[in-house]
Design a protein around this nucleic acid. Structure first.
Lengths: 145, 145
DNA sequence: TAATAATGTTAGGGAAGCCTAAGATTTAAA
DNA sequence: TTTAAATCTTAGGCTTCCCTAACATTATTA
């Protein structure tokens, strides 16, 4: 049960994550939301929506609202968590927000679970320090040289 | 001049990097080297080799030795440098060598140049510290909790 | 409510990258 | 040197993801 995650393509994960964002905002997604967020044409979106529906990761009927099934939600949330981990990490190493956001999308796929776990720990480690760790101050100086 | 890097697919970059490794070892590559390193079939390798040759990134003739052109070498070297940066980084955040090596392959593509630069700086920053930075010792403890 | 605009779907096709099967070439062995 | 093994290429086809053009549906507005 639940072998889908491992066999889901990178793109399918992307779409699922995109759908989650709309669902969080207004309770459902529309093809137009997907089209905008993924920067693809309507036919491309329709095609992927059908596939995701076939795999029971979303509910979707012609001209209808798109929602995540519980399994779809579970997968999308995992991807989104990863995304956040990487985005946070990139900001820590002083990358501009805009770039950090985009590059997190690249990082969030296909890394070994252990790698993701370590990135995640690294971010928590930094964030849990009461004051800004000395080494980050040093690193910032180092970058300016 | 040299707009190829930006338009080269991720896979093409992978192959180029693989070829570089064989070239470094023995002065040239053979289809069998590519097949082994990329874990693809001969026809897949042949197809990509032809494409790379078309783009003048390698020299390659039927049944012949494969070599990098100066442009191919320049691109492959950049990719390899990135790979090394990421591999080093992953080891710093305490990921097993074997996984670090594989995941560096994922990281080495499609990140913003600024992101790559920052990763690179981060690694240099750590490596240039005379002694092992305190925070890494702390991080290691943190991971064990 | 009829016309228009926005949204969505279907049909058909393309590029990238992968494969197996079959055949060609080169290398190694008998 | 003939045969066998290894290597390599060609032919043909598959999947994923993308697209444009044409058509259908829904929403908006005159």
């Amino acid at each position: 049960m639940d072998m889908n995650q491992s066999t889901l393509s990178r793109k399918a994960e992307d779409y699922l994550e995109g759908i989650l964002i709309s669902v969080n905002e207004k309770g459902y997604a529309r093809p137009r939301d997907v089209v905008k967020r993924m920067e693809v044409s309507y036919p491309s979106a329709t095609e992927m929506l059908r596939k995701l529906a076939e795999q029971k990761l979303i509910t979707y009927e012609k001209y209808g609202e798109i929602k995540l099934t519980s399994e779809g939600l579970s997968i999308a949330s995992k991807i989104k968590n990863r995304h956040d981990v990487f985005e946070n990490f990139l900001k820590i190493i002083l990358i501009k927000n805009e770039i950090a956001e985009k590059d997190a999308c690249v990082l969030e796929h296909h890394l070994h679970p252990e790698t993701i776990r370590q990135f995640s720990k690294f971010v928590s480690f930094i964030k849990e320090s009461r004051k800004r760790p000395e080494f980050l101050i040093e690193f910032e100086k180092y970058c300016k040289k």
